[in-house]
Structure formats: structure tokens, C-alpha cells
Design a protein around this nucleic acid. Structure first.
Lengths: 333, 333
DNA sequence: GTGAAAGCGCTAACAC
DNA sequence: GTGTTAGCGCTTTCAC
């Protein structure tokens, strides 16, 4: 970034008006006579003037930039959420600064602080658990935050998600009705609020309510090979039905079962709890809890635009409908 | 973004030094006596001072922000590239503004202009073909650009990629040596420079050089169902070996072939030209041209940091090695 | 080694 | 409807 060639001052001089008027034209303020406006617009075009958003940001205290905090870019779950966010952001002319925070050199709250230093107008948080320092920083700087596809144990931040407990219970019911009674839950990160405070408790409640014996909770199963390597353990533990939070892990378990000669779904059933593209292209196709990921992202971003404009928001905790899509990895009886 | 509570001026007053000295401390300038530095740092800590990056950007003309231009966030090819970029960006303390440009309300060069208005220090371009207006804008604003995982017909922009012609030729050779002589190429966007000026010509040359009859080029095959629905046409055209640029389309073709009862690879072979996670988790696993996507992103970002610092870069057109990974969708004889 | 002061390019009162 | 002016929070000469 070098010294700007043409500034608002150049336009003002050339159009024989003040900087204020040029500013008004650029920002669509109506208090400008049509002839003046046209003259200014002509000069803007002729000089190829482009406003410097950094200077605008400093002067107006609005950067029209929002921060996106995501654990991992290569996880399709977040990519699909991001797409919904991105489309709405474009619609409202916000730029997106994206930061991923998994396996990092920097601590999460440092990364978030650097985002805040960039003076983002708002933040969409999609990671597992909002650290206290970060929550503090958001409040101190009065930065609006919306959680998308995740939850927080604090009540203070807006969120858009689905009812994970209800969804998982429905999925477990499906497995049970198919005659599978040795049910397990396989999660990626047990510290995630969605898992630790929603999915796992729902599973435990279900097991207890239906007298299905000891609970079997497998944690830290994050990628394909984690899933693949877990399957023998599941066999050893006598499991014949699983609900898996990450679909890449589901695929690992599925392939491992197939390679072991296990009949899916006759002998072993799988439900994956976050439907991305992946779940539907493998064979047999996976039964999934289909979350409206694109919509979650879009609704979250829309809500954020309102919060950033200090508009009234009637409900800051939105739950969107999910769907249990029955495919070939369950009997569906 | 509201009026900042504690500014560099507050720190200066509290530490009984000038703003200039605080600025020096913040920016790690050595021309500060140790005692002064310590005193300033103590005040910074005590007041929880955080520099306003927007003001820094305006004053210094460096925003420590880079733009990422990508067609589609949910395409794993770009996600994996982005991960490499992101890691190196973090290392050098750059933030990333990401913009996707497929199916948009705004024209590509408008989106790019809005990125430039944000005064990004550099840009990584990963899309199909850099529009002339955008190329002009980059040059006019002297913004360094590196293409990652893509190419440009102009020679003027730096790039990091693989040798697509060589890779495709090698893949076609594999198919031919397996006894398949009715070979086709299936591409997503034929306007992409990688396809239009590299992959397709390589295919045509190969067909001609080996007397394999008429070329069969299928374009606009972008997603799973495009691939799935294309397969019957491939059968009708007598094709028994394909190279496919997008792996989601490869999977569509694969599943369609399997559903039709075709034996893969005995009767029909597939090579996918961009190996993401997807290619290795489907069954049969797909033979792929494995590009070092993470590395391409990382190397591109590293090069960009040099360009942004006006450092000498010996080679601005880097080709990284690829690998033809033989899996179950080819006979590999 | 440190400070004073002039900007960076723009917005937003306020005055007319 | 338009202009004047004072910042926004910081960096960077240039003195000393």
C-alpha cells in the first residue's frame, strides 16, 4: 500500500465542491442537489477514484468488516456454514476476516484479540467453546457476537443452531427401534459445548431411560483414521449402533466395518450427526441428522447485521429445524 | 466500533513519555532505553492498551491484511490450499480477508475492487481466470499478487502450482497402459486457465499422438450430480477411461458406474485430477493426481510475504512436484 | 534516546 | 444544499 494517487480531496477540487459533498455523494446521502451529484460522480469516474476504506473506518468507526472464527477450514461442516454467512455478508456489503484456531501457534484469545484490533464491527463464532478472555474482550469492546452452529454455556451471546439434544434422541430412538441396543456415541471434541453439554447428556439420558446398560462414550475421534481405528474397539465393546458427531469419522468407521466384513446396517448401524456432502456420497450412504448449515450461517449473519446496526432483535437464540434423513446405514424399521 | 477507551495518547501520558516513544515500543523499535521501554510496557499492560490496527494502517500504509480470492469455500480443493495459506499468514501475523466469487450478486472485479479498497497488502488468487479489470487494478495499486493452485495466461503474476500438462499426460498414459483406449477428459470450468490452456490441450495432444481417435471433452461437470448424470453419456460414447478435474464429480461418475453394474476398474477406469480427502474415502478408492495442496498454499503465502516486503524473489513461477497415486479405480498394470 | 508536529484519507458536527 | 473544521489513533520525519 503506497500513497494513494487520487483522494477525496482531488475529487473535491476537480468538481469544485468541498470534501464533505464528495463524501455525501460517495455515501449516498440525499442532501446533495442532483446537478452537484452528477458532476461529482463524473469526476469520480474520470479520475477512477476509490474511497480508502481504512480512512473511512478510522473516521466513521465502522469498518464494514466482520470476523469469522472457525476451528478448521477443511472441515466441510464449517465450510458450508461459512457459505451461508458469506452470501449474506456480500448482500450487506461486509467483508469477512476469517481466522481458524485449531492446532495453532497462537492461543485462541490472542488470535481473537488481533481480530478485535482490526476493529471488526461484529463476530461470528463457530468454534467449540468461547474462552473467558475472549468473552470478556467482546463485552469490553461492545462487539456484537453471534454463535453459528455451536452453543455457549453463557446466555449472553446470540446463537443460531439446532436442538442437538432432541436430534440425537431421535437418532438414538431410530437405532433402538431397529433392534440395536448396544449404543455408543462417538464425539470429536468433548470440550465443545455442543458435545459436552448437549449431545453427551442427551445420550446418557437416553441410555438410562431405556435401560440400555452402561454408556459407551468415545471421545477425541476427529478424523478419518481415528474413526477407522476405533471400529475394532467398538466390536470388542459389543457395540452395534453408533451416533457419530463428525461425518469424516463416520466414514472411517463405516469403511472399517465394511473392510472387516461386517454387514451394515444389518449387524451394525451408523448415524452421523452432521450431514455434509461426504455423508451422501459414500456407499452405503449414511443416515444423518441433516442440519440446515447454509441457513444457519445465513440467519446468523443476518442477525449480526441487525445487532451491528443496533436494530431490535426479537429472538437472539434461534433454533432451526433439522431432519433425520434415513439412508442405507440404518435399517429404518 | 465505538470510541476507543484507551489510546496511545493515554499510555504516553501515564508513562510520561511521548506518543512517539510508545509507538516505538509497540513496534519493537530498538531506539528506546530499556527503563523507558519497561515503564511503557508496564502501563500498556495495566491499562490493557491494544493498538488500533485501522489507525496504524492509515498512518503506516500497511494493513497487515491479505486478500484471498477463491471460487467456492465448500470445495475441498480450495479449503486445503487455504489451510496452507492460513498457517503461514498467522506465522507472519497477517490477517486474511476471504472472498468467494462464484455465482455472485456482484461481478468479480467489483468484489476484488472492494478488497483493494480495504487496502490489503497483497492478494492470493485461486480462481479460474483473472479478469482484465482486476489485473489492471492490481497493477495500478501496485498490490502484489500470487496465484495458488491456478495459472494465468499473463506472465506478469507470480504463481505456485504443479505441471498440469505433465501430470495429465502421465495419468492418461496409465489409462492407456491398462488397455483403455477410449479416453475422455471431464472438466468443471473450461474457461479456467488450468483447464483451457493446460489440461485440455495436454489431453488433445495425447489423443493425437497415440492415435486414439476423436477427442471426447466433457465440460461444465461441476458437482456430484453432474458427474452422476454424465456417466450414461460416457457409456453411450463408448468411453472406458476418464480423467476428471474435480473429485466430487469423479465420485459422482464412480457411483453412477457402480450403480449401473459396471466393473471398476476392469471395464471402466477413473483418475481424478485433484486429490482431496474425498478421493481416498470412497470405495473403490480413486486413483489421483496428488497435488501438494497445503504446500502450494504455504509456498504461495510465503512468497507473498516477500513480495510485500519488497524482498528479492528469485523465482516467481514455482512448480511443486505432484504424485500419481494409484488406487483401486485403475488396474495399474 | 526522545519529543514535537505534521500528516494518513476520511466523516460528522456545525454553521450558513 | 453546501462548506468549514475538528478530529479518528496512529506513524514518521525531523530536531535536539
Amino acid at each position: 500500500m503506497h500513497k494513494q494517487d487520487v483522494t477525496i480531496y482531488d475529487v473535491a477540487r476537480e468538481a469544485k465542491v468541498s470534501m464533505a459533498t464528495v463524501s455525501r455523494v460517495v455515501n449516498g446521502n440525499n442532501n446533495v442537489r442532483k446537478e452537484t451529484r452528477d458532476r461529482v460522480l463524473e469526476v469520480i469516474k474520470r479520475l477512477h477514484y476509490q474511497p480508502n476504506a481504512v480512512a473511512q473506518g478510522l473516521a466513521s468507526k465502522r469498518t464494514t468488516t466482520v470476523g469469522l472464527i472457525v476451528p478448521d477450514l477443511t472441515n466441510l461442516y464449517f465450510a458450508e456454514l461459512s457459505k451461508g454467512i458469506d452470501d449474506i455478508a456480500l448482500l450487506y456489503k461486509y467483508n469477512i476476516i476469517i481466522t481458524s484456531i485449531e492446532n495453532r501457534l497462537m492461543k485462541e484469545d490472542q488470535v481473537i484479540q488481533s481480530l478485535l484490533n482490526k476493529q471488526v464491527d461484529g463476530v461470528i463464532y463457530m468454534s467449540n467453546r468461547l474462552p473467558d478472555e475472549a468473552a470478556e474482550a467482546f463485552k469490553r469492546t461492545e462487539t456484537p457476537v453471534v454463535l453459528a452452529g455451536t452453543k455457549d454455556n453463557r446466555e449472553e451471546f446470540a446463537s443460531v443452531a439446532i436442538d442437538y439434544k432432541k436430534a440425537d434422541t431421535e437418532a438414538l430412538n431410530l437405532l433402538m427401534h431397529d433392534g440395536k441396543r448396544n449404543l455408543a456415541i462417538v464425539v470429536g471434541d468433548q470440550d465443545a459445548v455442543v458435545n459436552g453439554e448437549n449431545r453427551i447428556p442427551a445420550y446418557e439420558d437416553f441410555i438410562k431411560a431405556n435401560n440400555l446398560g452402561e454408556p459407551h462414550i468415545y471421545t477425541g475421534i476427529k478424523d478419518y483414521s481415528d474413526g477407522y481405528n476405533l471400529y475394532p474397539q467398538l466390536v470388542k465393546d459389543g457395540i452395534n449402533g453408533v451416533i457419530v458427531t463428525r461425518d469424516i469419522s463416520s466414514v472411517g468407521i463405516l469403511n472399517s466395518a465394511m473392510d472387516a466384513g461386517t454387514k451394515v446396517p444389518e449387524e451394525f448401524e451408523i448415524v452421523t450427526a452432521s450431514a455434509t456432502q461426504l455423508a451422501s456420497v459414500v456407499r452405503p450412504a449414511l443416515t444423518t441428522i441433516k442440519q440446515p448449515l447454509y441457513d444457519i450461517g445465513a440467519v446468523a449473519m443476518r442477525m449480526l447485521t441487525k445487532l451491528m446496526n443496533n436494530e431490535e432483535v426479537d429472538d437472539t437464540h434461534i433454533e432451526l429445524p433439522y431432519e433425520l434423513v434415513k439412508k442405507q446405514s440404518t435399517l429404518n424399521q
